[in-house]
Design a protein around this nucleic acid. Sequence first.
DNA 1: CTAGGGTTAG
Length: 465
Amino acid sequence: MVHGLMKTSTKLLNICIDSLCKSRNLQKAESLLIDGIRLGVLPNVITYNSLINGYSRFVGIDEAYAVTHRMREAGIKPDVSTYNSLISGAAKQLLLTRAHQLFDEMLRSGLSPDMRSYNTLMSLYFKLGRHGDAFRILNEDVHLAGLSPRVDTYNILLDALCKSGHIDNAVELFKYIKSRVKPELMTYNILINGLCRSRRVSSANWMLRELERAGYTPNAVTYTTMLKMYFKTKMIEKGLKLFLKMKKEGYTFDGYASCAVVSALIKTGRAEEAYQCMHELVRSGRRSGDIVSYNTLLNLYFKDGNLDAVDDLLEEIERKGLKPDDYTHTIIVNGLLSIGHTGGAEKHLACLGEMGMQPSVVTCNCLIDGLCKAGHVDRAMRLFSSMEIRDEFTYTSVVHNLCKDGRLVCASKLLLLFYNKGMKIPSSARRAVLSGLRMTVSYQAARKTHHKFKAAIKSNAIADP
DNA sequence: CTAGGGTTAG
């Protein structure tokens, strides 16, 4: 009798602790655990697994691993679930070696990894761009372990194919797996997202119909994905119409769709409607209060020139203990540049460095472009030289701005260098250099440079595929 | 374990 009651209590304790952990309230979960022990309700492996999962997701792998010592002291041995949580914690921080260490430790403890353990490892390899290693796990390790992939494994595979630009292979794989497993709503969402990212509007709509034919109802994820595709393909009104439909039909819409709508409205100069949308979101009480929605709002205030609101919002972010991310810093740098405060923007970048953070490529790109446009080409070029990672935005921006500044020789030399590196630069950059050369140097010089560019692009096209 | 939102060039 007493034993039965205790079992019920532990179950209740576990439900409470798990829900606290899932909502990031790890402190409260810890004190509940202590209260439980005081009252004689003993934790079991499930209790500790919830904690480990929470620390893995929201704090860090070391903090999560520390809990395993506490559970061992309590006489409870970690199980496969424990290790799965730990491995996903390592995977979240892209710590491949750590993930493998934990995997080996699990094997040494006599535990057999399950499909989820392999899924986590595969997904990590995909995230690191090591597709070959991911497929090796699937084709060798999973087989050796006597396991077979289910729909969740295929979801990971499909998503990886979509995100690495192999959407056609993803669709092919989808057709193949349909004969083996029943696709989930998530499976359809992954494919729709892949099609939307490559702007295949009609294929995305076809996949949406397939989703419905399979008996599913589109959810907030499906609609947000479609919404973004409309904005990306400049079909703003169509996107807004879909947003209205989501609201009207009472779909489980949340802050995700609103952020996408607000940013599209800002980009098309409709600040008034953007404010309205943001206010609606706050009123609905669905604002999740995460850094993404703050970034969206911050961008809106900057673009609207509402600097007092910017100050207040930055203060609020700090007060709430939210960590500004790369997007936040980019928005701030861009905002400072837009009000002509180039020194402030440079200072912000320097501050990041002092705090031991690397500014992102995007942040640097914005500063380079802003400095150039404000006439400080030399300062921009100094930043350009110091960058370790550059992308096509960096190059395009630098070439265009050098041309505008009349430094055509420099621009053409750099462009040639980028072509030789195999970078994909929009043809507008080449046209800017050539027309500049024609106007300020000579038709002859432009023609010679044109040939050089063509040769570089051609030799790269052969070396690349 | 796996799906959707926010920043930059032309």
